[in-house]
């Protein structure tokens, strides 16, 4: 009977734990090595949306292109972190509240010009617990500033993500 009770208690705790914590992988998808290499920092912001506001994502991505800092209504953000921190170690954003939200990413260069933005909508609360292969992908797209800044310029073919992040120096930026 004691074994029965301890097994029951263990099951109860496991069920409780599984109800509390969820983890989700997020991928910032840069179009190519050049766009990654030319970026200096990335900020990922979480902005709650009301039901039916899914299409706001496009305007949020555009708004982010011209915003000076954090977008209004942001509830969680990574802050401007080195792009290589994301690629080498991954950045954690803890305890993002459930519910429908826009995940907006903004990549800037060393002059703080916005080079890329991206937005994805996800409802964290109602969707099933994410599995191992389930990731939230934020596709980043170059801005007007990027096009103007790098028009006609070729990114060095010798640069890749590893070189950019391990002492590629100025040539890979």
């Amino acid at each position: 009977m004691r074994r029965t009770r301890s097994a029951a208690l263990t099951s109860f705790i496991l069920v409780l734990l599984s109800g509390c914590a969820q983890e989700l992988g997020v991928e910032l998808d840069f179009p190519n090595v050049a766009t990654f290499g030319r970026s200096s920092t990335v900020n990922v912001m979480v902005i709650p949306l009301a039901e039916g506001e899914e299409r706001q994502c496009a305007s949020l991505a555009q708004e982010a292109e011209f915003a000076i800092g954090t977008l209004p209504d942001t509830v969680e953000e990574t802050g401007a972190r080195e792009v290589c921190e994301f690629s080498q170690f991954g950045i954690n954003l803890k305890a993002v509240p459930s519910g429908l939200a826009a995940f907006v990413a903004v990549a800037r260069d060393e002059s703080s010009d916005v080079l890329l933005t991206g937005c994805t909508v996800r409802d964290l609360g109602t969707e099933e617990s994410p599995g191992d292969e389930d990731v939230l992908q934020i596709s980043l797209f170059p801005t007007e500033a990027y096009d103007t800044k790098f028009e006609g310029m070729t990114y060095p073919a010798s640069c890749d993500v590893e070189r950019r992040c391990t002492g590629g120096g100025a040539t890979c930026r």
Binding site: G19, C20, A21, Q22, E23, L24, G25, V26, E27, L28, D29, F30, P31, N32, V33, F36, V44, T78, V83, F86, S87, G90, I91, N92, L93, K94, A95, V96, P97, S98, L124, G125, P130, L136, Q137, V161
Partner: peptide, 14 residues
């Protein structure tokens, strides 16, 4: 008050 922990990384041209 369920919440989700995000682990953010990068990909190139997926």
């Amino acid at each position: 008050d369920a919440s989700t922990d995000l682990s953010i990384t990068t990909t190139i041209g997926q």
